[in-house]
Structures are given as C-alpha cells and as structure tokens.
Design a protein around this nucleic acid. Sequence first.
RNA 1: GUGGUCAUAGCUCAGUUGGCAGAGCAUCGGAUUGUGGUUCCGAGUGUCGUGGGUUCGAGCCCCACUCUCCACCCCA
Length: 439
Amino acid sequence: MAQKPSIPKGTRDFGQVEMARRNYIFDTIKGVFSLYGFQQIETPAMENIGTLMGKYGEEGDKLLFRIQNSGEKAALAPEKGLRYDLTVPFARYVVQHREELSFPFKRFQIQPVWRADRPQKGRYREFYQCDVDVIGSDSLLGELELIQIVEEVYKRLGINVCLHINNRKILAGIAEVIGAPDKIVDITVAIDKLDKIGVEAVNAELLERGLSEEQVEALQPILKQESGIRNQDKLASLKEFLASSETGLKGIAEMEEIFEELSIVNCQLSIELDLCLARGLNYYTGAIFEVKALDAQIGSITGGGRYDNLTGIFGLPGVSGVGISFGADRIYDVLTELDLFPKALQSTTQVLFATFGKEELRYALTWAKELRAQGVAVEVYPEPAKMKKQMGYADSKQIPFVAIVGGDELAQGKVMLKNMSTGEQQLMEFGELVKALKS
RNA sequence: GUGGUCAUAGCUCAGUUGGCAGAGCAUCGGAUUGUGGUUCCGAGUGUCGUGGGUUCGAGCCCCACUCUCCACCCCA
C-alpha cells in the first residue's frame, strides 16, 4: 500500500455498525417528532456567507468554515460558508418561504453542521444536529410540547435524564435588580460555569468582567440556591427578589404557566429550575433548556429555548419561535457507555443462498426473487465457492438462515434450509421456506 | 486562537544505551472436493504519520508539518 488516504481533522467515517446505531437514534427521534405534527425539511450544506456572519457572536464567526471561491474569483473573499447550526438557516428558510408556509410552522431538521473548532472527545468539526422548532406562535404550549418530546425520546432510548430549565427574562431581571442591566451577557457567561468551576471562581470572573463587589454580593442568593429546593419554592422566593423588575416578573409568570401545563399533562420527566443555566447563544429571549444524562458524564445532550425575533435579522420582525436540538453524537456516546443499544440492530438479511455450481446459482436467483417479492431480505452468494467460505460469510454477517442448493435439491425442486444458531437443517419446498423465514 | 500529548501490520499494542522490524487478534490457505461459529497446521503484510537534520548506522536523538487525545476559550 502506498500512501494511506485520510480524512480531514475532526471528521469521521461511520461503519456499518455505527450507521445501524445512528439510524436507530434518528428513527427514534423522528418517530416522536412526527407524533406532534412536526415535518422534516432540509437546507443546503452551504449558505451565503452573509446569512451566517454575525449570528453567533464574535467567537462564532471565527469558527465558521468559509468556502473558497474557485476559478477567476479564487482570490476574492469567500461568499459562501458551511452551515454552523440549523437554527439560523431555518430562520432564513422561514423568511424566504413565508408566503408558502402556514403558521405556526412546525418543522424538524436532521443534518450535519460544521465548526472550525479544535476537536476533542465528543467534539467534532462535522457533527449532526436534530432540531425541532415551532415558529410563528407566542404560545407557551410550544415549550410544553418540546418538553414532552424530550420526555418521550429519552424514555424510548432508555436514558435517564434531567431537564434543566431557566428563563432569559429572569436572568435579565436579575441583572436589572442588581443594577447591571447592560452586563447580562457577562453575567450569564460566568454563571453558566458554576457547576464546573465553583462559586469562588464564578465570583472572580464576575469581578473581572466589570461587576462591582456589591453587585456580585447581591447575586449570591442566586448562585447559592440549593438544587434540592422545589421549583415552586424557588419561583416564590425569586418573585420577591425580582419584585422591582417587570421583565423578571414576566419571566416568572411564564415559568409558572409552563409548570402548570406540565402537571396537567402529568409529565414524569425530572425537571429542575436552574437559575445558573444560561446557554451561550444570545438570540434566546424566554425559556431556555438543557438536558443532561443522569448516568453518564458528558455534559448536555439536548438544548434549546425560545427566541422572539430570530427572523428579524432577515427582515421579518415579530415572529416568535421555540426550539430544541438533540445532540445525536453525544446521545450515541451515552448509549454506548451505558450499553443501551438494542442488540439486534445489525443484520437485515434473513437468508443467504449458498450454492455448489452455476446451475444451482441460477436456480437460487429465481427463489431469491420470489422471496423478496414476499418481503424477505435475501442474499445470494455471488459464486459457488467452497461451502466453508459461504457459511463463513453468513456467519460473519450474522445471517440467521442459509439455504443450501446442490444437485440433489435442484433435482427435487427444494432447498436445504439451515438454522445458523441451532445448526439444524431441513429439506423444504418454496411454500415451507417462506413460512419458516417469516415465522 | 493558547498550552500540553500522541502516532510502529487491517486492529490493539511491544520494541532495552542508537545496531537485521515484533506479539496477540483479525485476514488468507490447508487439515475437511456438501456445512459456519470450536480445534490443529501453514502464510502474508510494514516508505515505523510526512518532510528535513545529526550519525558509519535512526522506530529510538534534533527541527518543522500533519493527525489523535487532553486542558483552556467556546460549544453539541
């Protein structure tokens, strides 16, 4: 072998086993989305660079993959870039197709996105997002449905999770109350790291980001709120804290309504009002959520929130939406770590025809065609190789049955069906074969 | 973008102070010309990540680049 080929940094090949498992995740998620009337769309891998730039903050712009122009324009600045997430292209889609859509518009989208990040475990330069959004309605039922979807998806996948929920209006209220409304971004970025770096470090970072000693001190009740407290009690004490902030009280009212709706539908999901949850993206304006796997240490596996004006940047103001994104790659890692993938995801082939000669091979072809017409997945070993080899192939692909065709079978118009797990075999004609394979 | 780390057969990895490139697993062939998963026998494979340097001699030492993984930044 000469020079070995390779793939770009932070990208991956997916083999047969991996794809079977990935499709299991995608199919599970899609199945739940459909139950709520969400329909699938796709958008191009590349967008015009102007669509992407400035939407993800300074950091985001740096992580955008830009596509070099080709031909005569090669020396000019890039005019296209690879999509960085699915939400911004979705906003573009909604604005562009607004006349064709009926609102509220419920869509889901499962596609790869690209970030020029430095890869490490669980972080890639190409990875998949499964986004589900409802846009064009202020109703908090949107939040409710998404939470129900989270509940159902993880129930089906068998992963124990906790949904952390917060509200940007509450965060804004807190910033207002401590007299630093312009510092909301700095506050959220710092606060978000609480369970990672601890109270002391967060306080230090807050000071570094320009808050005064008094302001940091005023934040302490929020930072030190214990996780054992009931969500309702947290809201009650917050109400006092935020009494002077109209925005903050509105956030609380929203949360109260969401919790009320959740109890109406008897939601069993473990949900925690987490005032330290901030999430990076700045377009969120209302509820924000993040889902963490309880039995695996991998960070968040799903996240999202309400955004009131995402389409505004594309010239369509006043359209509110709410959405979440399932991190398929991380869900994959969690299922692997906890050994939760169903065992029988592999082999789709039910039966392999193994033959001894050209005539038998042709005979097998006609049987295979008939079987496929009956809905049975069939393979015919492409040459009359040694039986050992043909059996070995079936074995390595875990094909449960092998239909052996030799001179005797040919003469009798039958096949010898071998059960690969018990080793038993039996001579049978077509009708019996169909019956045996479909049972 | 900053700091560190890794790379040897298809895979997982040994390789001593610089002196002929190794093992297990997998693969292929045979034992067995109509029977796999177990057993036995046999076989093959390497630009030692890439390019340069030091040396009589480099998998090993030096420099650069690429890739892996990790901690920041940020994020799914």
